[in-house]
């Protein structure tokens, strides 16, 4: 079993932020929110999260595994299917490309690029 070498990851500093980046908080809240809506039992979640962490390399950050486990559970519970995911991902990519740096990123922004290029 790897991870026996002392210290790496054993970060003893106090007062570290709860979430390092906003997406971690978003991913966290989605899991808790779906659970609170009764869409899965907490132990079902813990099983999938444990499995994901076990399969991933120890260098993979915790919330990355958390997010992968979220993708697994929404698909397993048939809340979202894979084609919906790939279409929506493409829409966000288009929205990002159409949104000037610093402006709020919204899905509808993806249509503004068309306006600009047509003019």
């Amino acid at each position: 079993m790897s991870g026996y070498e002392a210290i790496p990851g054993l970060n003893l500093e106090c007062g570290e932020p709860v979430f390092n980046e906003p997406w971690e908080a978003n991913a966290f809240a989605l899991v808790v929110g779906l659970h609170e809506k009764g869409l899965f039992q907490w132990n079902e979640w813990a099983d999938i999260l444990s499995e994901t962490i076990k399969q991933n390399d120890v260098s993979i950050p915790y919330y990355q595994s958390w997010l992968e486990a979220l993708e697994t559970i929404v698909s397993r519970k048939a809340l979202i299917n894979s084609s919906e995911v790939s279409i929506r991902r493409g829409e966000w990519v288009a929205a990002l490309e159409a949104t000037p740096h610093g402006s709020p990123i919204e899905l509808k922004n993806r249509f503004s690029l068309d306006l600009e290029t047509n003019s």
């Binding site: 997406w23 978003n26 779906l34 809340l79 966000w92 990002l96 949104t99 000037p100 740096h101 690029l113």
Partner: peptide
Amino acid sequence: HDHDHSEWSDMELKVKTLESLLLEKGYV
């Protein structure tokens, strides 16, 4: 446009993809 548009990490993109779909469907 390639130089001044917004960018997200892959993690942000994944979360936003799931979040927007789950909100639309009313699961959260």
